[in-house]
Each structure stands twice: as structure tokens, then as C-alpha cells.
Design a protein around this nucleic acid. Sequence first.
DNA 1: CAGGTTTGCCGCCAAC
DNA 2: GGGTTGGCGGCAAACC
Length: 155
Amino acid sequence: MARPEDADLLGPLVVDEILIRLLRTPIGPRVAQIGEPKSGVHQIAEAVSWIRAHFAQPVTVDEMAASVRMGTSSFHERFKAVTSMSPLQYQKVLRLHEARRLMLFQQMEAGDACHRVGYLSPSQFSREYARFFGSAPMKDTARLRAEGFATGAGR
DNA sequence: CAGGTTTGCCGCCAAC
DNA sequence: GGGTTGGCGGCAAACC
């Protein structure tokens, strides 16, 4: 990074070294799996990044599976194997974390945050939020502020 | 991978 | 008036 003129030559070597060392660790087999074309890991990674970019919009598992050219069943199975979560759960967690961030750092109201992250009904949003974070949206953010998080200064 | 069954999420209404 | 909770039906998700 300090010497851009060397990056082209040395970069690939550094990457290779990192990969080799990684493959020698206990999680080596799992790392190797990523490069295995038929393992489906690459397709799952594709789906994951799509969800991360569009978590606020509604989507069906069938659509996602089709977009990476997999059957619904195997897509489920592979997705969970890689992320340890089901597709919809993954989307939900992203939504809830983003909503929490919006309320904490942007002083956004619960209702606005709710719609912003893709929930149509505030009641459902509040319910899911409480179940995941332990307490309802406004209670949770109030508690975090009391503990010194997000003292008003942005981000 | 396809298909059948169970689970649970989502959105609505109502109450607090 | 906004936020939270409870109950319920429909349907997709999750599981087998």
C-alpha cells in the first residue's frame, strides 16, 4: 500500500500467502469449499450481497433462488449452511439493525424507521424488534442512550 | 430437486 | 398521537 508501484507484483503474492496460511488452519476445509464451484458457496455469497443491498424491499425465497439458478430447497439448505441463518431471518436481522441505527444516530422516530427498513406494519416491527433486541424500539434506544451510546453527535 | 406438511412471519384490528 | 402489545387469519417460509 505504501508503494503502489510494487502493488501489482507483490499484491497477488501476499494474497496467496494469506490463503495458504488460512487453508492450513482448522477452518481450512471450509475456506477451500468457497473455491469449489459446485458447492454453491459462491451463489450463496451472491444472494447474501444482494440482500445486503436491498434489505428494505420485499423478496421471496423463490426469486432469490432463481436469480442464482438454484432450486428452492437446495438454496435453503446451502444458505443456512453458509450463514447459519435462513434467508428471511438474515434479511430480518439486517432490517432490525438498520432501524436501530437510524433511531440511535439519526434520531428517527420508530414509525419512520419501521417503514424505512421495509416493514409495513409498526406493530409487527415493534414485536420483532423486541424479540430480537430484548425490548421494544423506543425502550431499547432510550436504554442505550442512558448507557452512553449515541450522545447526539452524528454517527 | 420436487412435493407435502408444519411452522412462523406479516399485516390488520383493537386495546392500552 | 405515537408506540407497544395481544389476538387472529392467510400465506410464504422452513423443514422433512
